[in-house]
Simulated scan of single mutants.
Amino acid sequence: MSADVARGHGGDCGGGGDPPRWNSNRIPTSCETSKQKNKRGPSKGKNLEAVWKANGNRPLPVLFDKSFEGTYYGLGDNGTKMNTLLGSLVRTLVPPYYLSWDEVPVEVKAPIIPRVETFFDIGRNTHDWERINVGLDRYCARRYADNKWKLHDYFKKQGGRNNVARARRNPPSRLTLETWNQLIDVFLNQKWQDRSNKNSDNRKKQRFSSFHGTRSYINTRFKKMNPETKQIQGAIENWHDNHFKENRGWANEQARLAYEQLVVEKQIQSQHATSSSANGFVVNEGAIFSKVFGDRRGHNIGLGRKLKRPSGLPCSSNTSTPSSYETMKQMIQGAQEASDRHHE
């Protein structure tokens, strides 16, 4: 399967630590993620400033996934750097006390796209822009939810609903007391509690264990692109690699059985093509995954997210962008340091 991507066109468009303190006027300048139990090596995000300078201080091109229904997830080194910057901006520019990302006011989200465009060409003037923007919005929603759950874990450790008074007296060092109490009000909201319980139940129902952690399926496939043919790894082969290790075997029995079903369906599809003498036949892995796993709202198992929402991030050309080099350097530094501690 060749790389099916959307791209910009040259940059001519405009845990151990506490959870982050929110300040709407502050640009990310330091690592603002909780510690990971397992440390990893130096992140490629460390080179963001160097890469940006080497590109003449012009926006870096980003590839976006268009395979199957299109996740429009940022791919490759530049995509990873962009995702890291997005996460850093969400953590520092958006207060955590909204019930969900979709309820964050437009004016609060407005600075995100212009600041990302300082460093990355995200295809504003391409025909894919609407879908790209929705993909960026959904990535921000994921990061916003992840940050809120970390804060919720901190809330529970400080007493949670069993000792709300104690929790209110002990805000994380990076949140103001006012912001912390507004967030606690959200945690005590019945709608939040119902959603929390539902998500907990859904996690218990997950059938497939895996070894790929928080990395997206499409990025693990993209990283295994054939350098000569420019073909990214097939989704079925990727399922095998993400759920099987030579020294550990299958992540669980369900993952093994699913892989066997995928292989069988691929063989059936190929046999039908042979019997009908179809020319130029290409295996439709999207159809195979849909048949094996069924359809799910918002997500294709083994392939990634679905983009159904019509709206994306606000991107008015009237929104001001940071212009001074020092301001941009601070933004890059924040993305670099967050990348070193947060696995995107």
Rank of each mutant, 00 (worst) to 15 (best):
D4Y: 13
K35F: 12
Q267H: 11
L307H: 00
Q190W: 09
Y325M: 11
N47V: 08
R203T: 09
R296I: 02
Y97G: 00
P95M: 02
P310C: 02
G45A: 07
V282I: 15
N47L: 15
Q182H: 15
N25H: 09
K81C: 10
N238T: 06
H243P: 00
H9R: 15
N38H: 14
P314S: 01
N162F: 05
Y97N: 05
V5T: 15
R168M: 13
A3E: 13
P314T: 01
D12E: 12
L303M: 04
E49C: 08
L262M: 06
P310L: 02
R296F: 08
R7V: 12
P96H: 10
S24W: 12
V282N: 14
A235S: 14
Y217P: 07
V90H: 02
Y259V: 01
N279G: 08
E246T: 10
A54T: 13
V263A: 08
G70S: 05
A258G: 07
G298Q: 02
W52E: 03
Q206C: 05
F120I: 03
V264N: 10
V134A: 10
A235R: 07
S2W: 12
P171Q: 04
D146Q: 11
A3V: 14
Y325P: 00
S339E: 04
V51N: 14
T214V: 09
Q182M: 15
E253Q: 15
Q231N: 15
N238M: 10
M328Y: 07
K230V: 05
I27Y: 12
R26W: 07
K148I: 08
N219D: 12
K329Y: 14
R341W: 11
R341E: 13
E32D: 11
R26Y: 07
R221Y: 00
T80R: 07
E69W: 08
I301F: 05
S2H: 12
L136N: 02
V62Y: 05
L183M: 04
L175S: 14
Q182A: 12
A141V: 06
V292D: 01
E69I: 06
K109C: 02
R161K: 14
T29L: 09
T29V: 14
P171M: 06
P42R: 15
R166V: 05
G10A: 04
S290H: 11
R309T: 11
K109W: 00
K53C: 06
A278D: 10
R131F: 05
Y73K: 06
D12G: 06
N23S: 12
Q336C: 07
D146A: 13
M82F: 11
C31M: 14
H299G: 00
K291D: 06
T71N: 09
N247F: 07
G10S: 07
P28G: 01
P227L: 02
S88H: 04
N226M: 03
S339Y: 03
Q231P: 00
V104T: 01
W22V: 05
F211A: 03
R256C: 10
W52D: 04
D12K: 10
I184W: 00
N242E: 07
N47W: 11
G15H: 14
G41D: 13
Q261S: 15
P111I: 01
L48E: 00
A167I: 00
V51M: 12
N300C: 06
N55C: 08
H299F: 14
L99E: 07
T29F: 10
E260K: 14
T71K: 09
E237L: 09
E130F: 03
V134Q: 03
